[in-house]
Structure formats: structure tokens, C-alpha cells
Design a protein around this nucleic acid. Structure first.
Length: 858
RNA sequence: GCGGGCGUGGUGGAAUUGGUAGACACGCAAGACUUAAAAUCUUGUUCCUGUAUAGGAGUGCCGGUUCAAUUCCGGCCGCCCGCACCA
């Protein structure tokens, strides 16, 4: 008699058993080999979403699988709980960011636990816990002591109506999201982490990360952007100049293409270049040009996509080789943060320069001739040529290729004492100042006499005051009655406390070390314990973090190492990384353009209508689920309707983990049916030992064993290589084979025991229930991973496809160890082959042992 | 704009990484069971050639390398991620 699988009854029961047995607690002192499994911890938005379910289900598969393989597994969870949404909520709906945040944590923990993840909650913390940010401040001061922190001015988005700093995402089409005012750029004193100190190490370290996706390493390498180039001076045509209070002999530019120097037709300064700034003071036209540029925005994207804008300063420099004058422009696409903040424009061989030159009618002189082009007729149209070629129109460089031309040009400039070859990085230092309340206070004090003074360690934490309000825009810390007023720790005079808080990326740059090293109060973490667990063996998270979070963490672990807080010579926090794809869903909008939740949309004969209003709904792009677009599906509905195992199984089946998965209702039902199928199979079976090994099996029983071991081998390799969908397919096949098998013998017990243990990482509740039903010893969670008998994987015969001229015409079944000669003879004797090659001459027979036979005939 | 990735039946996807394209699943169709429905089971299901144990086409599009290309190379198209103050 089979009964329906009742997830609502079964799942809480096992969750209670696991909790009471405290089975997921990791032992720091275990003798077993250690395995640290970690998923990117969530921001407590208040609801879990399908992306969380997918992310944590993947990590859970790894954690449970490694446990079954005999590892001591650390699999912790916590909360990335500082950030803007809490402040936005306080502004929009009232309340306090702290209450909102901790309420959300409470609300999210329950459904997370309902999913049955093998998490060690004893190590839980939130980054907004005073105990955590106290240590965050401690780390900041240690970084300061080790010269990894400094202060400089940098630009921010300034909303002139709200008088507040805006995040990039709060600037929409150049306007403040609330006020609608045109956003300006404003210089502010800000704190920076010196990530560029490790630029080379961060780049070289990528080569050691053999369990990271290539694409992530490529993106990081490009982000660091190491380039060899030339930093050189273009001298003014009319001698040294006093600009402002400094004497300039010319202007310094950086270039990676000194081979194209003869193609230079102008010099372009950044709108933020020191010379530009001085000129702006003297000339209101320059100033208004700078103001225009400042409206574009601070992101590289905005600058790169904005129409090219230029201003001719009237200044001229001398070409170092020809002596010809070149005009000096100010151009909106030149970044102050990269190189020297000035370039020479070579329009023929750089697209941005070309766009600029065409707009302002500047010379375009090609100096690189592509292979096969004729020097006399070669001209540049609207596309710059950036490829390889032979230099021409370039006097002493003529005839060189790109690489040689670069070397020669650099030595020539060095000889002329106008510059030198340099290594440049695109990577900029990490600005961490945020003019916001809900973050970790930066532990420094500004004293009129002593300057910037760190808060003494004994005075930590600098706690966030609770009595704040969001009546007005801006940072409440800045207008708090007492927070700012402190005595200088050095001289004791009245001083001002720093009111900026740290970028929340700092919080998530070392949380994994605190998970491992404990909630210590005198140090960020226990050095020895944290160093024993680190690096994280398997990190799982979204591809959207490919650069920033992962790079910042790699910086932090190096900083912690060099401050003596962590024993991690490589500096690499994550030995293995997997970036999963996103959960996507179509966006629905009504006629007025309002977003509509999928749950409120009904499909009536192919027409989409709103459930309540009956209005027509339009299906839009399939994109990442996000609250703002309302294209979200609540996992709680799935868990309540079908159970946690079904939700987990669904997000892991079918789609390859690295790819985006589109949420569909139909897939859930399939997962639900499978769970029932497994339960039906097990509940109809009498008690039998799931740890059986049927070594005496013959005939059908032997066939089942072979099948089970082959499937098990593929299930295992699927998990090892993060292709859970292929493991799932093999589990389906094993289940189908077991359903067809009638006898209740040792072979069935073995295969069924394998099946139950194989599904355990995916559907832990169901597997415990099955394990208990069969009479398995202890918990399935503690059962070892099934061992595959290699001898059972070996086939004695193999079916080879027969191709004629690359087209399949038949197949033959031959012994696995057949010789090439015999295989060829059999292939040529095959009736289908004979029919196809009739009238043709066999030119060649290619035999790939165990794979294919291809006959080439004409 | 720049950097990175993805594209295979009606749908999600598989293909031991250059060797039988479409495993497995969803959906659909037919049948069995049932008073009936649900559930379950069986069979079929890339497209075209009116018949198929035969032939042809086919992995976004165009071209190339190879005995052999979903896989490698070049060029396009479409979509997604990131671009330093969203997390």
C-alpha cells in the first residue's frame, strides 16, 4: 500500500530531529579533513526569493555531499544587514532602520529554516550587530596603522534640492530620484582603502585560482587593467607657462599606443584636470563647459555613452618628433582617475578620438597600415582601425609592427628626456565614505589641532545612536545633537566625530573569516581557528558579484594577513568559486505601464488579464526577479503548497546551475510528482538494509547493480562539477530502473540505498523519511556517500556508429577490446555501409576506438 | 560605449569537451484503469518528403578549418551581467 507523500507532516518532523541533535554544528577541533562551504549571505529585505532558494540549495548540496564524504563541514549563515534599503524604508514608511532590519531578519530566518538547509546557526551574526561593526572598526584602524587607509577628495552625486549625496542608482537620467533636480558633482573629502597597493598581487593571484570560473578571472584581470605604456610630456609651443600658481613646461599624457604618436592630432585634458580647473577660474566659458560635463554623471557608463563634448583651450603644444603644433582641448570622455588625466588623440586608431575629431573637424592621419592595404589610398572613414599592421607616415617608425613600434617610440621619448615607459593600472583606490546613517561608523575624530585622530581601540565601538530621525534628507548622524561632539583623544580639546559610515561592501569583505573564527570581542576573529578553516573551499553566489565583492574580499584578506590578523599566505579567501545564474521571470505591465505581480496575472485562452481588475496585461522582457519590477514569485507559496524538498528539487533540476533559469509553474508540478514517485517506490518496499552490497548478484540483479553503479558514478561527477541538473537526470533514470525491478533482493536494497543517499543532498527530508522506512541505521544525513565499484562500470561490448563521409548510416556492436583492423573489416561488411558506398572508392577508414568509425569514400 | 557571458525540438535542457544531436524531464497526443474525474501506468512525440525498416534538412545568422563541428576560428544578430555610492 502506498500512501501520498505528506511533506507538511514529514518536513517539520525531521527538522526537529536535526535541530535537537544539533547535527549541523561544525567542530573546530575535528580530526576530519575540513570543508568550508559558503553561499553569499543575504541582505535582509524581509522576504526570501527564488534566487536565495537556488543559491542556498546549491551550497547545501555541496555541504551535505561533502559531509557524506567524511569531511568536517562548516556551513554558516548570517546577514548582510547594513545598507540603503533600511533608510529608504524609514523615509518612506517611517520607523527605524534598525527595527526594520532586525524585523526582516526574523521574518526571513523562519522560511530559510523551512527549507531544511544544513546550516550551523550557532555562528550567525548580522553585520549591523554592534559586536560585528566594533570589529569592523577595529579592522579599519589596523588598516590605518598599516598604511592601507587614506583621505582625499573625490566626486559625489549631489542633489541640490535635497542637499544630499545620492548613490548612482538614485540618479535617474541625471536627476535625483526624489527631488527630480539635475544632479551636480561635488568634491568631498573621503576615506579610501588602498586596494591599488595590491594591484599586482591581486592580478597574479588570479592565476592560482584554478577552481574559479575563467570568465570571473578575466573580468577581474580586465578590471585591474594592467597596461604597459608611456607617460610623456608635450611641451608648450611657446615655452614654460605659469598656470595658477605653478609653472608647467607642458602637459603630461599617458598612452598605451606610443607607436601611433605620428598620428596625434590633438591633446585632450579631463574636465577635472588641474590645468582645466585653473583655466576655469580664469575663463567663465571653461567653467560653464565643466559644469556641463558635471551633469553627465559619475559612472563610467554615463561618461562613455554621453555624446562627445570638447572645448578648445586655445593652448598649443609641440609634437615631440615633428615639432608641429597640436591644439589642447578639454574633452568630456577623458577620465581624471586613469593615467595622467590627459591623452593625445590619435583619431585614426582610436574610436573615441575619431568620433571627437569628426565632430570638431580635427586632422585624421592614419599611421598603421592594415595588411593588404595600399598606403597611397588608405583612408579612415567613420571607423578607427585598432588592429595590427605596419607603421607608415611615421618617419623613423616606418615599417615596424605595433609591438616594435611601441618599444622604439618609448626609448626615443626616454632619450629625449620627455618621459618614460610605465606600468599603469585601471584599478582605482576604493572610496569607502558614505554620507549615511545605516552603516558602520568610521572610527575617527577630527581635531582642530591634531588633525585626523583615530578613535582609541579601548573606546570602540563607535556605536550608532538610536535616537535619530529622517525628517530631513541627508545623514541623520550629521545633525544628531551629541554624536558629533567629542573630545580629541590626543589633546582633549573639543573636536568633531566623523559622521561618514563605511561602504557596506566592507562588511561583506571579511564576514567569512568571522563565521570561521567565532564571535570574538577582542579581535575580529580567532586567528588560529579562522586560519584553519580558510580559505572557503566552495563559495557560491551570483555572477553579478564577479568583480566588486570578490575583488574587495581578496583585498581584505591580504590586508588582514599583512596586519597580522590572519594566517593566510596566499591571501586568497575563496579557493573554489561557483557563480550561479539568476532566477528570471517575465515582467508584466498593465495598460498604464504599472508593474503587476505574476501571481495577479491570469492566462485566459492565451490572453493575459489582471485577476482582480480584468484589465489586459502585457508580457515583457524575461529578466532577473526584482522587487521594483514586481516579477517575483514567493518561495513560501511553493513551500506551503508542495514542501521544501520540492522547491529545492525544482530549482536544481533541469537548468544548468550557471545559467539563468526562468521560473515556470509547470516545472514545480513535475518536481512534486517525482518526490511522490520516490516515496511510492520506497513505501511499497518491505524493510531492507539500505547499506547492502549485493556482491553475489546474477542476471537481472547484476544488471540492476551495473545500472545503479553507473548512475551513481554520473550522479557523483555531476555534483563534483556543479552540474546538478545532470545528476538529477541520472537520479530519474535510476528511479525508473528501480520501478521496473520486481524482486525484493539484495540488489534492490543496494540500488534503493544508493538512490536514497543520492537524493539526500537535494531532498533531505524525503531521504530521511525513506531511510527510516527501510530501517536504515541512524540518520541518512550521517550515512556515507555510496561507493562506486569500478568493475561494474566496465562494458564488454560497445555499439559504434558507422559513418560514410561524416553521415551516420548504421551501427555495429563489437567487443570493447576489438582491434582497429577487425573493426574496419566489420564496418565495411555492414549492409547499410555496402549500400551507401556502392559505386564509390573507399579512400580512408577512420576508426576511433570505442567511439566511431568513419568511412571516407568518393 | 567598454569588459564578460549566453543562444540546441512546442518548453527546460543532455551530448564523456572534436566523434550517433535531442539523454532526462515538462507539455502534448493516443491507449489502459475508473461510473466519472484526479492520480497512476503504457506507447508516441525535432522538422520536411501525403506512406518509411528509406531519404533530406537541422544546434541564432553568414563564412572557414577538419574524415568528422552544438563543440575550434572569423564576421554579424539577439538577449543577459558588470561598469567602482544597489546589494
Amino acid at each position: 500500500m502506498s500512501e501520498r507523500y505528506n511533506a507538511a507532516n514529514v518536513e517539520p518532523r525531521w527538522q526537529k530531529v536535526w535541530a535537537e541533535g544539533d547535527v549541523y554544528r561544525a567542530d573546530d577541533n575535528s580530526e576530519k579533513p575540513k570543508f568550508y562551504a559558503l553561499e553569499m549571505f543575504p541582505y535582509p529585505s524581509g522576504r526570501i526569493h527564488m534566487g536565495h532558494v537556488r543559491n542556498y540549495a546549491m551550497g547545501d548540496v555541496v555541504a551535505r555531499y561533502k559531509k557524506a564524504q567524511g569531511f568536517e563541514v562548516l556551513h554558516p549563515m548570517g546577514w548582510d544587514s547594513f545598507g540603503m534599503p533600511a533608510e529608504n524604508a524609514a523615509i518612506e514608511i517611517g520607523g527605524h532602520p534598525k527595527d526594520w532590519t532586525y524585523g526582516n531578519i526574523k521574518a526571513m530566518k523562519e522560511p530559510l529554516n523551512r527549507l531544511g538547509f544544513a546550516l550551523d546557526w550557532s555562528r550567525e551574526f548580522a553585520t549591523s550587530d554592534e559586536a560585528y561593526y566594533k570589529q569592523q572598526q577595529n579592522v579599519f584602524l589596523k588598516f590605518w596603522d598599516n598604511d592601507l587607509v587614506y583621505r582625499k577628495t573625490a566626486k559625489v552625486n549631489w542633489d541640490p534640492v535635497d542637499n544630499t549625496v545620492l548613490a548612482n542608482e538614485q540618479v535617474i537620467d541625471g536627476k535625483g530620484w526624489r527631488s527630480g533636480a539635475v544632479v551636480e558633482q561635488r568634491d568631498m573629502d573621503q576615506w579610501f582603502f588602498k586596494i591599488t597597493h595590491y594591484a599586482e598581487e591581486l592580478l597574479e593571484g588570479l592565476e592560482t585560482l584554478d577552481r574559479w570560473p575563467e570568465k570571473v578571472k578575466t573580468m577581474q584581470a580586465n578590471w585591474i587593467g594592467k597596461s604597459e605604456g608611456l607617460e610623456m610630456r608635450f611641451k608648450w609651443v611657446d615655452g614654460d607657462k605659469v598656470i595658477g600658481d605653478k609653472i608647467y613646461t607642458g602637459t603630461e599624457v599617458f598612452t598605451t599606443r606610443p607607436d601611433t604618436l605620428y598620428g596625434a592630432s590633438f591633446i585632450a585634458l579631463s574636465p577635472d584636470h588641474p590645468i582645466t580647473k585653473v583655466l576655469a577660474k580664469e575663463n567663465s566659458e571653461v567653467e560653464s563647459f565643466r559644469v556641463d560635463c558635471a551633469k553627465i554623471g559619475t559612472t563610467e557608463e554615463a561618461i562613455a555613452t554621453a555624446p562627445k563634448l570638447g572645448f578648445d583651450t586655445g593652448l598649443q603644444v609641440k609634437h615631440p618628433f615633428t615639432g608641429h603644433p597640436l591644439p589642447v582641448w578639454i574633452a568630456n570622455f577623458v577620465l581624471m582617475g586613469y593615467g595622467t588625466g590627459a591623452i593625445f588623440g590619435c583619431p585614426a586608431h582610436d574610436q573615441r578620438d575619431l568620433d571627437f575629431a569628426r565632430k570638431y573637424d580635427l586632422d585624421v592621419t592614419p599611421v598603421v597600415l592594415p595588411d593588404g592595404e595600399d598606403a597611397a589610398n588608405y583612408a579612415i572613414g567613420t571607423e578607427a582601425y585598432t588592429g595590427e599592421g605596419t607603421l607608415f607616415n611615421s618617419e623613423f617608425l616606418n615599417g615596424s609592427n605595433k609591438t616594435d613600434g611601441i618599444t622604439t617610440a618609448i626609448s626615443k621619448i626616454e632619450e629625449m628626456d620627455l618621459g618614460k615607459g610605465v606600468t599603469n593600472y585601471r584599478l582605482r583606490d576604493w572610496g569607502v565614505s558614505r554620507q549615511r546613517y545605516w552603516g558602520c561608523p568610521i572610527p575617527v575624530i577630527h581635531c582642530g589641532d591634531c588633525g585626523v585622530v583615530p578613535v582609541p581601540e579601548a573606546d570602540l565601538p563607535v556605536a550608532l545612536p538610536y535616537d535619530i530621525n529622517f525628517d530631513k534628507p541627508g545623514n541623520p548622524l550629521d545633525r544628531h545633537p551629541t554624536f558629533k561632539d567629542v573630545d580629541c583623544p590626543t589633546c582633549g580639546k573639543a573636536a568633531r566625530r566623523e559622521t561618514d559610515t563605511l561602504d557596506t561592501f566592507a562588511d561583506s569583505s571579511w564576514y567569512f573569516a568571522r563565521f570561521a573564527g567565532g564571535n570574538t570581542d577582542d579581535a575580529p576573529f580567532d586567528k588560529k581557528i579562522a586560519s584553519d578553516w580558510l580559505p572557503v573551499d566552495q563559495y557560491v553566489g551570483g555572477i553579478e558579484h564577479a568583480v566588486l565583492h570578490l575583488l574587495y574580499s581578496r583585498f581584505f584578506t591580504r590586508g588582514l594577513r599583512d596586519c597580522g590578523l590572519l594566517d593566510l599566505p596566499s591571501g586568497e579567501p575563496f579557493a573554489g568559486l561557483f557563480t550561479q545564474g539568476m532566477v528570471t521571470h517575465a515582467v508584466f505591465t498593465d495598460a498604464d505601464g504599472n508593474f503587476v505581480m505574476p501571481a495577479d496575472v491570469d492566462d485566459k485562452d492565451g490572453k493575459l488579464i489582471h485577476l482582480e481588475t480584468g484589465k489586459t496585461i502585457t508580457k515583457g522582457d524575461v529578466i532577473k526577479m526584482s522587487k521594483s519590477k514586481k516579477n517575483v514569485v514567493d518561495p513560501n507559496d511553493i513551500i506551503e503548497g508542495y514542501g521544501a524538498d520540492v522547491a529545492r528539487w525544482f530549482v536544481l533540476s533541469d537548468s544548468p546551475p550557471e545559467r539563468d533559469v526562468e521560473w515556470t509553474e509547470a516545472g514545480v508540478i513535475g518536481a512534486w510528482r517525482f518526490a511522490n514517485k520516490v516515496w511510492a517506490l520506497v513505501s511499497e518496499t518491505p524493510k531492507m538494509n539500505p547499506m547492502s552490497v549485493a556482491t553475489d548478484a546474477k542476471d537481472d540483479a547484476l544488471e540492476l547493480r551495473r545500472f545503479a553503479h553507473k548512475a551513481m558514478a554520473k550522479i557523483t561527477s555531476g555534483i563534483e562539477s556543479f552540474r546538478f541538473n545532470t545528476s538529477v537526470a541520472q537520479i530519474y533514470e535510476l528511479t525508473n530502473a528501480l520501478k521496473k525491478y520486481q524482486a525484493n533482493d539484495d540488489a534492490k536494497a543496494e540500488a534503493l540505498g544508493m538512490l536514497i543517499r543520492a537524493i539526500a543532498p537535494f531532498m533531505p527530508h524525503l531521504s530521511e523519511e525513506c531511510w527510516a522506512h527501510l530501517g536504515g541505521e541512524g540518520l541518512c544525513y550521517h550515512a556515507p556517500w555510496p561507493a562506486v565499484d569500478e568493475n561494474l562500470l566496465v562494458e564488454d561490448s560497445v555499439t559504434l556508429p558507422l559513418q560514410v563521409n561524416g553521415k551516420r548510416r548504421g551501427e555495429i556492436t563489437v567487443p570493447t577490446d576489438i582491434s582497429k583492423e577487425d573493426a574496419e573489416k566489420l564496418a565495411l561488411a555492414d549492409p547499410a555501409v555496402i549500400r551507401t558506398i556502392d559505386g564509390l572508392t573507399v579512400r580512408k577508414v577512420i576508426v576511433v576506438p570505442g567511439r566511431i568509425i568513419n568511412i571516407v569514400a568518393s
